[in-house]
């Protein structure tokens, strides 16, 4: 499943995308520890696969949570994307 979690801030509309099929084989679950805001959790999805997802309570606050990793002046690489070895996580900017 491809899960897209979107948010809007003053500069535009962005999406964090998780290709959860790639999570199934993942052993390290590196995303969980990599995000300074603890956005990622591993949960059984509706079809009983253990996959990464954005914590339910954080989905409404993405624009605040992600802001710290994205200062307006310059885009550096994001810790979540860097940590994910299966390449499941992407971010639309």
């Amino acid at each position: 499943m491809i899960a897209n979690y979107g948010y809007q801030d003053g500069s535009g509309e962005y999406y964090i995308t998780i290709d959860t099929d790639r999570c199934i084989e993942c052993e390290g679950r590196w995303c969980v520890g990599a995000c300074p805001q603890s956005l990622f959790v591993i949960e059984a999805d509706d079809y009983d696969d253990e996959v990464a997802t954005i914590a339910e309570g954080a989905r409404k606050k993405l624009k605040e949570k992600c802001a710290a990793c994205k200062p307006a002046g310059g885009h550096e690489s994001l810790p979540c994307i860097d940590a994910c070895r299966p390449g499941a996580i992407s971010h639309s900017w």
């Binding site: 801030d9 605040e64 802001a67 200062p71 307006a72």
Partner: peptide
């Protein structure tokens, strides 16, 4: 304050 602070952090 959380929302305004997130905006301020984007500006630095």
């Amino acid at each position: 304050a959380g929302r305004v602070s997130a905006m301020a952090r984007r500006a630095g």
